[in-house]
Nucleic acid binder design. Structure first.
Length: 490
RNA sequence: GCCGUCUUAGCUCACUUGGUAGAGCGCCAGAUUGUGGCUCUGGAGGUAGCUGGUUCGAAACCAGCAGACGGUACCA
């Protein structure tokens, strides 16, 4: 840089795009989500597991960095021995690695839950960050549909415990695979195209999906998206299949699917699996509204091999301007029978579910979640004079010993600013131990909530100052009890 | 990745055809020698995203880059 040496370089204070700072309120929401969901997971017999943020890139699967584009999709870097390491992009791949590495000694089937941040190096958007939290539960080593049902029940129970209205939509990869095979659509590229087309059902509706199944679709901006190129004879059966959802009960959907898939052995096997899942769900008391069968759910993930599930948020969320915000799925999962086999060569059936913690927290922040009690600040002890600081800290220690949080103001501003500070921290009380109080063996305590209330009635400043709403002066030894009563601890 | 719109004070936004910036809110202070709100008064705060070009002169016009937003693609 050719700058004047007198002006030092000043970096712009900013966070990398797709990465955000979380303040007290949001941390509180995320913490509650993780704690609640973890308890539910444990009640279903899942044990906790923490794996590192980094994995060797080859352990993460197909999104390997190659030498030209080492950072597509993942954040990767080379270790000092030249091996590629990458930040994990989900919690499932590390589980597969862990299970493969420790398979001999694990109790099988292995049930574990995990939570923590994951990272994806892709374009961020609203509700879409490059660092976010997930909370997963998986069962490795069971091929029973009942294991899938447990994972679904787990998700339903978790959302119920959080009191967040959601619906789990359940599908099975075998259904569509079977249908396509029976229709003679066996080209994997074409099959993938069909999955992508169906995934757009929410946004473009049946007519849009029809176009994408065939030649393709042009959107409003004139952009053309190439379709799956199915023959017209195959399009209608796929549309019929997708439309088979939306019946009143899980049983009704299965009946419809059985009709549509009558010519497909694999498809009927998939319906059979769903039937057993449905039976188990009913036994576990999962009601019809909380978990539905829906052949329109795709979950683009190529690694899913059987049942797939997706959690849909049923809250209406709006941003500051009142616009509807579509949050998409707030969780999902499914059966992945080939993931562990990547390491061991042995087919190891597994199924799991993932809570999108960050996305849920963002949604709850938008709706002003009623559970989110506003984060309260500490009791603030006003600092009057340097020579009395010891008295302030002594009182702070007493308050903490009584189970309340307290803080001595350690800035250098005057009293008015200190009161403002306490107000801004949403403190329950301010405590004054000034020269008068110390001389008289008293303490003055101001109930800030009571004052806030009173302020609404008083418009005259003189009156406001004289009333000193919520404020009392009492013997020093009564301070703790009075504070407790303000905090509703008596 | 592709297409489009946008970028002026901490925030939300103004500034008639290019003549070197304003408001509201917020923030700080005072009125009120030891008291949050209201009211009034004063103050701080901007190289108009960055870089280059056109011009006597650019926040405004042009180009490149960066970032934000919207759509689309992708999404483990």
């Amino acid at each position: 840089m050719t700058e004047n040496p007198d002006t030092p370089f000043r970096p712009e204070a900013r966070s990398p795009r797709g990465f955000i700072d979380k303040r007290n309120a949001q941390i509180a929401i995320e913490r509650r989500l993780i704690e609640t969901v973890s308890k539910v997971y444990e009640s279903f017999g899942f044990e906790a597991l923490q794996t590192p943020a980094f994995e060797y890139a080859d352990a993460l699967g197909k999104f390997l960095p190659d030498s030209d584009r080492p950072n597509v999709g993942v954040f990767a870097l080379q270790d000092d021995d030249d091996q590629w390491m990458a930040l994990r992009y989900d919690l499932t791949a590390p589980l597969a690695r862990f299970a493969a590495q420790n398979w001999e000694t694990l109790p099988k089937p292995f049930r574990r839950y995990a939570y923590g941040p994951v990272w994806r190096n892709e374009k961020p958007g609203p509700g879409r960050l490059r660092e976010f939290m997930q909370c997963d539960a998986d069962i490795v080593g069971s091929d029973r549909p009942e294991a899938d049902a447990e994972v679904i029940a787990l998700a339903v129970t978790g959302f119920k415990a959080l009191d967040i209205p959601t619906r789990i939509r359940i599908n099975n990869r075998k259904l569509l695979n079977g249908l396509l095979t029976s229709l003679g659509v066996i080209d994997p590229v074409q099959q993938l195209g069909v999955l992508r087309a169906i995934d757009k059902l929410d946004r473009f509706g049946l007519p849009g999906v029809e176009l994408l199944l065939g030649a393709g679709r042009k959107d409003e901006s004139g952009d053309f998206t190439k379709g799956a190129g199915l023959p017209s004879s195959a399009i209608q059966p796929v549309l019929d299949f997708v439309s088979a959802g939306g019946a009143d009960t899980r049983g009704d959907v299965l009946n419809r699917l059985a009709n549509v898939l009558a010519n497909s052995p694999e498809g009927l096997a998939g319906v059979e699996d769903l039937g057993r899942i449905g039976t188990a769900l009913a036994a576990m008391g999962v009601d019809e509204a909380s978990a539905v069968f829906d052949p329109g759910i795709v979950r683009g993930l190529e690694y899913y091999t059987g049942p797939v599930f997706e959690a849909e948020l049923l809250l209406e969320t709006r941003d500051e301007k009142g616009n509807l915000v579509q949050f998409g799925s707030v969780g999902g999962g499914g059966r992945y029978d080939d993931l562990v086999a990547r390491f061991t060569g042995e087919k190891t059936p597994a199924t799991g579910f993932s809570f999108g913690v960050s996305r849920l927290a963002a949604a709850l922040a938008l709706v002003g979640d009623s559970h989110t009690t506003r984060a309260r600040g500490p009791i603030v002890i006003i600092a009057f004079s340097d020579s009395d600081m010891g008295e302030y800290f002594k009182l702070a220690a007493e308050i903490r010993a009584a189970g309340m949080s307290a803080e001595v103001y350690v800035g250098r501003s005057g009293m008015k600013a200190q009161m403002k500070y306490a107000d801004r921290r949403v403190s329950p009380a301010a405590v004054m131990l000034g020269g008068d109080e110390l001389a008289n063996g008293t303490v003055t305590i101001k109930d800030l909530d009571a004052g806030r209330q009173a302020a609404l009635q008083i418009s005259d400043n003189q009156q406001w100052r004289e009333a000193r709403p919520g404020q009392v002066t009492l013997p020093r030894q009564d301070a703790i009890n009075h504070l407790k009563s303000i905090m509703n601890m008596t």
